[in-house]
Amino acid sequence: MHLPLIELRSVSKHYKVGRETSHVLKNVNLSVNKGEFIAIVGPSGSGKTTLGQIIGGLTQPDSGTVLVGGRPLDKRSDKRLSEYRNQQVGFVLQQFSLLPGYSAIENVMLPLMLAKVNPKRRQILALEQLRAVGLADKSRQSANKLSGGERQRVAIARALVMSPSILIADEPTGSLDAAHSQEISSLLHQLNKLRGVTVLLITHNLELTRHAGRLLTIDNGQVINKGSYALA
């Protein structure tokens, strides 16, 4: 039997804001196969980001189970979860998420540094990823001096430098114009096809989801559509 790479069983999550409780996810069930490109769409505050964070091991569900490669995430210690984020997941976030004052290559080397990879090897691997996103010539440039599109490409290079099996892109084009947004979307599609990386693209921009094999609509903490997607 084919085992899904990611499986969510009755996952719920709530946050307390002051005295009020906000139920962000309600009994979410989901299966994602290896190499899939899934677009998760929905309005702001619908729970898309929380879903991505739970799958990425950044936060734990209040109830339910998350299985990655058949193994539950919620039973893992901080050490194991950190290793999981370092080696199996790559995050691309809306705010570029680059370390200010660091060069492009230093940003890409961050996961390698955390994994105690030899400094020389770090340079080689990071440069390789920058080349893959077309920024090898700007590797020594400070992240602050790159354009929005370039910064997001550096963030993608960093997300891929450890060769993860899952790439979670949370509103990766939120701060970019239309042309750069399409460029990033195409890059994610390319990586999915060429490297077989499972991509979870979280966005509210339907234009970006054209490459996704499956569209997941989430609203008010519940998955309301798990169908395949074809842009009208």
Binding site: D78, R85, N86, L93, L110, P111, L114
Partner: peptide, 16 residues
Amino acid sequence: RYMIGVMRACGARRSV
């Protein structure tokens, strides 16, 4: 705080 968040997302343990 944001840098801490990024580092944690990249696999930094609390102790790191």
